[in-house]
Amino acid sequence: MQEILTSFMPNLIDKWYEFLQAIVDTIIMELWAGGIGFVLGFTFGIILTVTREGGICENKPVFKILDAVTNLFRSIPFIILLTALMPLSRAIMGTAINIQGAIVPLVFGSVPFFTRQVQSALAQVQPGLVEAAESMGLSNFEIITRVYLRESAGQLARATTITAISLLGLTAMAGVVGAGGLGDFAIRYGHDRNMKDITWATVVILVIAVSLLQLVGDTIAKKSTH
């Protein structure tokens, strides 16, 4: 058995432990940046929805600023963010390299995207529902939780899935700051040193990961739709 594997995927077997470490690094980055990004993106998405003109907590200055900042970071390609945010990364995480150094850029790279996704999901809630809730004497907090979030749960699940998958793509570039991960592994060995079996192995793992994320997301979305 060992001989068959070694003849098909010599490089992968050779670098097996690095491969496993790369998978672990990717998972760590995905969970940390994903977790922080989820909370921030969710919050900003809600803020943008309620502070816009005609919203339940209309606040034009807050809306304009948050909207502009979101647009700003949306327009910067991630690979540039990685280097541009190095000073900020050092200030917050103490370093600009390795996994810790990648978290800040990953968060800045995915939060604006997720914010827009959340905003879009909430915008699909019929305005009539909000009006009905107001007429029943619900507070703004209750309207956000019992109407906006509850009625867009399916959409939000889908938005989270899309963002999680997109984030996985961003982690592939994290190798630029020495953070490791599957993308970095594939670039260094598969691309730079032309080790095709490594390239294929990384693709397979990533397809499995994305499919799992999609499956979980779709299941949650389906259960929330009536």
Binding site: G128, L129, A132, S135, L138, R150, E151, S224, H226
Partner: peptide, 20 residues
């Protein structure tokens, strides 16, 4: 005001029922 609103019911042209 929220308390007073509870004493006033309202129905709408497009019903506005919570779909979930």
């Amino acid at each position: 005001l929220r308390s007073e609103r509870k004493k006033i019911g309202m129905i709408f042209q497009h019903f506005n029922l919570m779909p979930s």
